[in-house]
């Protein structure tokens, strides 16, 4: 019962905030909606027992990535003209309808085809230790490679965003 309550609460707000991210006009509002969305998503992770992922999700996403968005928004300080969207054209409505219908259909077919049945997924026991073990043994190379990727991204973004002399 309490599980249901928690899940539906989280899911409802996640859905709302997702919609908000893509529909609101003000980028700051969108960023805040995104923060809420990601924060609640971390809640879903924790709810499933993935504590460590949840913590990382909050630290990295809300603590760094979205802050970066906010920074950029504040630095750009867009004028209202910029924020106005043009009136959607007919073909856009059409495409929207097709996309939603397509997703609904694909999702339905996919979920329908899952032969797992309606098994309740249990919460995982405390698994930080195991995650660490897997990460630093089986996935050591990907881990190192990703760290190099991050380094490249740092250098790249500094190089791109630097003021030209």
């Amino acid at each position: 019962m309490s599980d249901q309550l928690v899940f539906w609460g989280l899911a409802g707000f996640i859905t709302l905030s997702s919609v908000a991210v893509v529909t609101v006009r003000n980028p700051v509002t969108a960023a805040v909606a995104l923060v809420i969305n990601l924060f609640l998503l971390a809640g879903v992770y924790a709810f499933q027992g993935a504590d460590f992922v949840a913590a990382i999700q909050i630290i990295v996403y809300t603590g760094a990535i979205v802050v970066l968005f906010l920074f950029v928004i504040m630095i750009l300080n867009l004028d209202p003209e910029h924020l106005r969207s043009p009136r959607p054209r007919i073909w856009e409505h059409l495409v929207l309808g097709v996309v939603i219908a397509g997703f609904a259909y694909i999702g339905y077919r996919f979920l329908d085809s899952l032969d797992v049945g309606k098994v309740a997924s249990n919460r995982l026991p405390d698994n930080t230790y195991d995650v660490a073990m897997i990460l630093f043994s089986n996935y050591l190379w990907p881990f190192e490679i990703v760290s190099i990727l991050i380094l490249l991204a740092i250098v790249g973004s500094v190089a791109i965003a630097k003021k030209p002399k």
């Binding site: 805040v32 504590d51 460590f52 913590a55 760094a64 920074f71 930080t128």
Partner: peptide, 26 residues
Amino acid sequence: QVNVGFLFILAMAGMAIYGVALSGWA
């Protein structure tokens, strides 16, 4: 009671930025 105790604390400390940033911007 949180398993990943101080990661949680770090995460929450990170959230504090929004208060500062939003109020300053708003």
